[in-house]
C-alpha cells in the first residue's frame, strides 16, 4: 500500500500524484518506470516515474485518463492508497555527454522526459526541448522543463500557445538551425513514429521510450513485445528505450489497440 501525498491537476485529464515509495525514490534513475495496481480488482499498468524526492521518500507519477485503470487512479485523492506499486523497472536512460540533445516530447510524455532532461543537462549537454500538445491547456510541466533545458520550443496544433504546428515542425526548425547529436522522443506512439521518420531523414541517432501494454512488467508475460531491427524485444526488461530507427511503430500501434474493444 502506497499513500498519495499530493494530487495536482496538470490539465483537464492529466493529474500528477506524489506517492510514498521510499525504496523506489532511492533506487530509481531517469528512464525507469513502475507498475501500479490501484485496487484488488485493477489491472497492473506501467507508468513512468516523472520525479523522485529521496528525502521525502516519494515519487511523482503523471497519469492521463485513457481507460478503466487510469480513470480509477485519477479518481483517487490525497490520503488514499495505491494497492500495489512496484519498481523501478526497465533499464535506465543511458546518460553521457553527447553534445546537443533534442528532447521531443508530446502530451504526458513530457513527464517521463523530465528526469532525462535533468540528467542530460547535469552531464554537460546542451538540451533543446520541443514540447508539443494539441492545445494550450494540455501543455504540462513547462516550468520544470525550462529549468533544465537550454532552449524550449512549445508547439500546439491549434497555435493557442507557442508556435502553431506539429512537433515535427518544431524539430525540423531546430535541425536546420544547428547540429543535433542525439534525439530522444517520448509521447504517443504515432507522434514518435513521425519524429523518427524525420530524424531518420536527417540521419540523427534517435532513442524512443516505448509505453506498451504490460501485465507483470518483469519479463514474464511478453505482452509488451515489439520488433526492433526485426528482432522481438521485451519493452519491460530490454527497454523501455530503443533505437527508434529500428522500432516497428506500425506493429506497436496495432498491438497497443489489441484490447481497445474491452474499454
Amino acid at each position: 500500500m502506497n499513500k498519495i501525498i499530493k494530487k495536482t491537476n496538470l490539465s483537464p485529464n492529466v493529474i500528477q500524484l506524489e506517492v510514498e515509495a521510499p525504496l523506489i525514490a532511492r533506487s530509481r534513475k531517469a528512464g525507469h518506470f513502475v507498475i501500479v495496481r490501484v485496487d484488488k480488482n485493477s489491472e497492473r499498468i506501467p507508468l513512468t516515474i516523472a520525479q523522485a524526492d529521496i528525502n521525502k521518500g516519494t515519487i511523482t507519477l503523471v497519469i492521463q485518463t485513457i481507460g478503466v485503470s487510469t480513470r480509477k487512479i485519477c479518481a483517487l485523492n490525497e490520503g488514499d492508497f495505491l494497492s500495489d506499486l512496484v519498481g523501478p523497472l526497465g533499464k535506465s536512460t543511458h546518460i553521457e555527454k553527447f553534445g546537443t540533445v533534442l528532447c521531443a516530447c508530446g502530451g504526458v510524455g513530457t513527464a517521463p522526459m523530465l528526469p532525462i532532461i535533468e540528467a542530460l543537462k547535469k552531464a554537460g549537454n546542451r538540451v533543446i526541448t520541443v514540447e508539443a500538445a494539441r492545445t494550450r491547456e494540455l501543455i504540462i510541466l513547462e516550468e520544470e522543463v525550462r529549468k533544465y533545458s537550454d532552449e524550449v520550443i512549445i508547439m500546439t496544433d491549434d497555435g493557442s500557445y507557442g508556435n502553431k504546428g506539429l512537433i515535427t515542425n518544431g524539430i525540423e526548425d531546430v535541425i536546420k538551425k544547428e547540429k543535433v547529436d542525439l534525439c530522444i522522443t517520448i509521447g504517443p506512439a504515432v507522434m514518435m513514429k513521425y519524429v523518427t521518420l524525420l530524424t531518420k531523414k536527417y540521419d540523427i541517432p534517435t532513442t524512443a521510450s516505448l509505453n506498451t501494454i504490460m501485465v507483470d512488467g518483469t519479463g514474464m508475460c511478453g505482452a509488451c513485445r515489439v520488433s526492433v531491427g526485426g528482432k522481438v524485444r521485451f519493452v519491460c526488461v530490454d527497454g523501455p528505450e530503443f533505437d527508434a530507427h529500428q522500432v516497428d511503430f506500425d506493429e506497436m500501434i496495432m498491438r497497443l489497440n489489441a484490447y481497445k474493444d474491452f474499454e
Binding site: G219, C221, V232, E251, A258
Partner: peptide, 19 residues
C-alpha cells in the same frame, strides 16, 4: 524461468497471439 519463448514465425506479433 521468466521470459516466454516465441517461435519467430511471421504474424506472431499480431494481436490475439500471446504467450
Amino acid at each position: 524461468a521468466g521470459l516466454p519463448n516465441f517461435m519467430n514465425i511471421p504474424g506472431e506479433n499480431l494481436s490475439g497471439v500471446l504467450s
